[in-house]
Amino acid sequence: MSEKRGHLYLLTGLIIGVLVGVLLSMMLPVQYTDTDPSLLQNADKDLYRSLIASAYLVEVDNNRAQARLELLGDVNPQDALVAQAQQLLASGGSEEESRALALLAAAINEGVVQITALPNINDLPVSPPLETNTVNTPVVEPTGNSTKEPTADVTRTPVVTVTPRPTVTPLPTEGSPYELVEQSEVCDAGLSTPLIQVYVFDLEDNPVAGVRIEISITDRGMEVFYTGLYPEISPGYADYQMVEGMIYNLRVGTAGQLVQNLSIPRCETDDGKSFPGSIKLIFKNPD
């Protein structure tokens, strides 16, 4: 009788084993060696991403920065950059770091962003070439304990990429004397929170990312944020959430015009209901 049962028990055992194995793999921490950045733990990914952004300010090589970001395996690198920049600002982290992240996010959004590279303090007589090297994005086999040679399947081919420059995004010059060219109230009942919406443009009306904006409240100190954190709206856009009863002063750039006494405007719906509005400020660099 038992001879006729066949070998289904083997299949049953195998299925049970696979289920147990998958469950175990999800519970047991795994440590990869000789791996790629996409498998880093989140804290290290943040650090790596931040370093990519900082290095971008030195190299100003969009292709390379993008190739490096792709290594992290983010579904949307731009969103990851923006989220990290916002998180940094919210937690009182480094302003420079968040600015670098915002600029890189804007660079990805625009495709090509031209910024001035940070100078080398050692005055090296060399500079990153215009014809950029692109780090190949290696195909990664995340094996648990790989013993293969570290560089076996990775080649660093210096690819000459002719970067198209259809649009030129202006330089985010912190010291530029941005002037207020338009101030208006925004009565949009769809906006859930009252905002100060800031748009920064250059002389040719191109939005400028990475511009420092200072906002101060009397006796309550100052906060800093940057344009470029919402590239889906505009690379030159930034906003700040207002609180009822507060009066704000705002400056764009370090030498920009101070806009004073900003507070939540009152708006009315068609049926006469009052709701808090927002303020829209447009700044331009006249130089």
Binding site: M26, M27, L28, P29, V30, Q31, Y32, T33, D34, T35, D36, P37, L39, L40, Q41, D44, L47, Y48, L71, P138, P150, T151, V154, R156
Partner: peptide, 13 residues
């Protein structure tokens, strides 16, 4: 669940 850190990156990275 990963504890992979920067020290675990391949040499080229």
């Amino acid at each position: 669940v990963t504890t992979t850190g920067l020290q675990d990156l391949r040499a080229d990275y």
